[in-house]
Design a protein around this nucleic acid. Structure first.
Lengths: 333, 333
DNA sequence: TGCAAGAGTGAAAACGCTTTCACATCAAAG
DNA sequence: CTTTGATGTGAAAGCGTTTTCACTCTTGCA
């Protein structure tokens, strides 16, 4: 025995008005006589009428739902962004369809398509490897798409980020200032624009400014996991590094613990600076120095930007750069 | 100049068949002559036709979308569950609308309502404080709802969990076996069923089994944050505790670091065992001993259960209990 | 040769809303 | 009193699918 759903038509009949009028009061349209409005509201209340958002979406061509593509919710960096996104979305009455992509191009394209099929009003994309195919999909989307905490070298989409090049350069300079000359650059895949086109650039810049020669033996390309970091100690040691810039906090924690476990003292014998300033940096011992990013805000601002785009408001700047900082904790001198 | 969307009608016209037939081929209905199917598929391809999921949802009364209510994505425990949920959901062609509730009753009710308005096919709820009002909303929902990693004392909804009482009892027994008599019970709000009706019960049981008197001075009700744990050291000390069972990993990390920072040696002078076995337990030093839970699986199984419910398959057991374990690391002797 | 039973297809009615357009009403202005 | 411009309301046409039902062909079989 299915519960019978009450529709706008039922309300109209009971209130002795037209569907149009019911629709008006539901949507807060001011062109309704107060007496009528009251009458309709009473019936709505009595019948416990709840508008069907799907029907609404079909008729109005707006779903008040946005799609969010995230590499992995389980990653503290991204989940912080996601929280910022959701909070602002909720503030603007949007809901979020969240899907994990594992930064896998095929999955990203597929997910993007189902999001578009579901007629989301907008999309927020996180992930640093924007393939040509993906870019093509972006282009064909009628819903606006903004990148959050992610970069695409082609800069074809609106995005919100920090200035990665400058941030990394500053972090590395800090290490250099402490007397380190052999500084490792540890990050995830170099196929990712953020590593290849931004972080590495910052790293090289700092080196160059200090007159230190770039040595690709000091560049460690691995994946963003604790384990990967932990097992990096021998290689780091073999390369003669005395400090490392690391592109991810979990990875950095691994690097640091791997070092410590191998009897290398951090920061006295080896300094580590990381990138994302997630909670993690405070939990490990020694606490990790890090580039600071307004994670929550990156998500929040991205979502805010998206709302403007969805409303066809003109936005002065398509790519917004938020301020970063450097937080000295105990993994650097 | 809006891009003109191509509809099923356009395809039908171009392929010289009816909409019904196009619908059939799109949905893989076998009652279509191969030749016809081929012809239609060609047109679909040529026009780049993409079915509108909203229209589909309206007509079929299925949205292939489920709602997920999560206290906070940023929390490692819950985000692990969320990942399990999403993976299985994707496997069954569902998408997920994710909303953060902060375990705030009012927000939960509101979110639940918007999810139902959006006609989700099912809902997964995480949160340990099921108010009467919430229970009422659950009841009125036509979409099935399952609790994941969350308990409701009334057991009115399907759920997937571990046996919290037994797990906590075992953890505490372990502490007792190490010679501790004054064992602190540290958790979040006692209003939450999981703390009040499960964990505390397990704690008391272990005490009773060992013939140790229960002392509510040793029960610390706080919130699930690192900071809260960190500042607990003086109180713990004042109560004369020599060990603690903690209900959340981040909180436990705080407790442990607070202790360490105050010069209390873990585990020699104070043992700590935590509850959720998130990655965190491995990142801090000493590594934390913990009850182990199959986090990902709890989410995955909950989602799987939900698919069955949505298909009206009969399920033998409405509440599934997954196995737990105890992982000894370095925060206990 | 005739007939029952599929197989394949199309017409059209939902699905539950928004929105356009036309119309009616009414108060203020001439 | 008329005219006018707002204000309030309803009829009905979408929105893009799925699904039911009826109908036409084919086949296989008696």
């Amino acid at each position: 025995m299915e519960k019978q759903t009450v529709t706008i038509y039922d309300v109209a009949r009971e209130a002795a008005v037209s569907m149009a009028t019911v629709s008006r009061v539901v949507n807060g349209n001011p062109n309704v006589k107060p007496a009528t409005r009251k009458k309709v509201l009473e019936v709505i209340d009595r019948l416990d009428y709840r508008p069907n958002a799907v029907a609404r979406g079909l008729a109005s061509k707006k779903t008040t739902t946005i799609g969010v593509i995230i590499p992995d919710v389980t990653n503290a960096y991204f989940s912080s962004l996601a929280r910022g996104i959701d909070d602002i979305a909720m503030m603007y009455k949007y809901n979020i369809i969240l899907t994990n992509s594992d930064e896998n191009g095929g999955k990203e394209v597929q997910v993007l398509n189902t999001l578009m099929a579901k007629q989301v009003d907008g999309i927020i994309f996180m992930g640093n490897q924007v393939t040509d195919e993906l870019r093509e999909e972006f282009r064909r989307s009628k819903a606006p798409i903004v990148l959050a905490g992610s970069v695409d070298a082609e800069k074809t989409q609106p995005s919100v980020n920090i200035d990665y090049v400058a941030a990394v350069a500053e972090a590395v300079k800090n290490l250099i200032d402490h007397g380190n000359e052999k500084i490792a650059f540890v990050s995830g895949s170099m196929d990712q624009a953020i590593n290849h086109d931004y972080r590495l650039k910052g790293y090289k810049k700092a080196l160059k400014d200090a007159g230190i020669a770039y040595d690709d033996k000091l560049v460690f390309e691995t994946d963003y996991t604790y384990k990967a970091g932990q097992s990096l100690e021998p290689a780091l040691n073999a390369a003669g590094a005395t400090a490392a810039f690391v592109g991810d906090d979990e990875l950095a924690a691994g690097v640091m613990n791997g070092l410590t476990d191998a009897g290398v003292a951090v920061p006295d014998e080896f300094e580590v600076i990381t990138s994302n300033d997630t909670k993690l940096t405070e939990l490990v011992r020694p606490k990790m120095s890090s580039i600071t990013q307004p994670l929550y805000d990156i998500g929040a601002v991205a979502m805010r930007l998206l709302t403007k785009l969805m409303n066809n408001e003109t936005v002065d700047e398509n790519t917004v750069i938020l301020p970063y900082g450097l937080m000295k904790r105990s993994s650097t001198k």
